[in-house]
Design a protein around this nucleic acid. Structure first.
Lengths: 199, 199
DNA sequence: TTAGTTAGTTATTGATTACTTACTAGGGGA
DNA sequence: TCCCCTAGTAAGTAATCAATAACTAACTAA
């Protein structure tokens, strides 16, 4: 079936992401992608001049999805503690919906192969970290989070929580919901971070 | 230079680990390894019947190193809080010394390709988690760690801390010492976990 | 109706992969 | 000294990879 170039490009990108999760990013060959979609291998190169540019489009899609999820999560939320929770929850949600992301971070296409993509990903993750840090600092200023630690360290602990949950889920049997277990652990960590009222 | 088979095998395994870190696990071809050592590619197959068995030896070496590090760290340490710290510190140390480990967890050789290796790695990591969990429970019984969370969740937080530190270091510029920053963050998390004396 | 555009195919390329076969050299033990 | 085991080499193999070339069918606008 003949599709428009835009639709086909989007289909290729999403197929690459699916297959990257299923068989690993480096196993995603042009032939495998084409077969999965129902095209010939050569047809891919009508939409993307090289495989590297195909991976570039995939990376752009992923970083765009992340940014959109953060923006949506923070939409109209002003309470710093709620913003922290919303950010982490959004991150967990995107990873759960796009399980190839953790593997992608370590794939050769985004690290060894393409230094630009590696930089783009790192920059995006540092934006996440800085946003987290700022809201934590605000919560500390309100006396809602303990000042026993720096906002930077608290942000590291929270982003580590996401990464740990993602790793366990990606490597595990994937029976449980990553989002649920991640959010449950987030609640535990936030309770530790909150200033205790008891004596 | 002609070496004994045992020495050569060990040299091949350690070379694979080094190159896996430098260029990524899937980029480690038999040709690249042979060239790095100064042998012909065919010589590798005199020591390992297939590349899969070579990766098996690498995985065995890594899991063995981890187990040895844990044992050494816990040697003669009975205080549960100290054991927790020693375990996490040992884990950070091994990863810092063998930086290919995080990438290895997501490589096709240990996930898609070889289901046995994947299982071996997961089992080893769950042993780490259970040891951590037991010592945390002991520390809680002593009233040294808050009972606000389950030992399981606390262990998840600590292993996530290691994984997060490893990821940031592996993907980052690697200017700082992973072990130092990891240990510093460990202190922060342990302080949050410890029962507070103030009111 | 027709001419141009574009998504698609078939067939093939050179490079690289893991792996094999047949041969060689070198060192230690008798 | 001689011999034999073994680490190593030279020269290939089939399979698979990304990419290219030449061609075709389908859609669109004039």
């Amino acid at each position: 079936m003949r599709k428009s170039a835009d639709l086909r490009k989007a289909e290729i990108v999403s197929t690459v992401l699916e297959m990257a999760d299923q068989i690993g990013p480096d196993r995603v060959t042009t032939n495998a992608v084409a077969k999965q979609i129902g095209l010939t291998q050569a047809a891919l190169f009508r939409h993307f001049p090289s495989k590297a540019e195909l991976w570039g489009a995939v990376a752009e899609h992923v970083t765009g999805t992340l940014a959109a999820a953060w923006e949506a999560a923070l939409e109209g939320v002003s309470d710093p503690l709620e913003r922290v929770r919303a950010l982490v929850a959004a991150q967990l949600g995107v990873i759960a919906h796009t399980p190839a992301i953790p593997m992608l971070l370590f794939s050769r296409e985004l690290t060894t192969e393409n230094e630009v993509l590696r930089g783009a990903f790192r920059e995006r993750l540092s934006v996440f970290h800085e946003t987290l840090e700022a809201d934590i600092a605000a919560a500390q200023a309100q006396g809602r989070i303990t000042v026993d630690l720096t906002p930077r360290d608290a942000a590291y602990l929270l982003s580590s929580l996401v990464q740990g949950a993602a790793i366990r889920w990606a490597l595990g049997p994937r029976t449980t919901s990553m989002e649920e277990t991640g959010l449950a652990l987030l609640d535990v960590q936030l309770r530790l971070l909150e200033c205790r009222k008891d004596g």
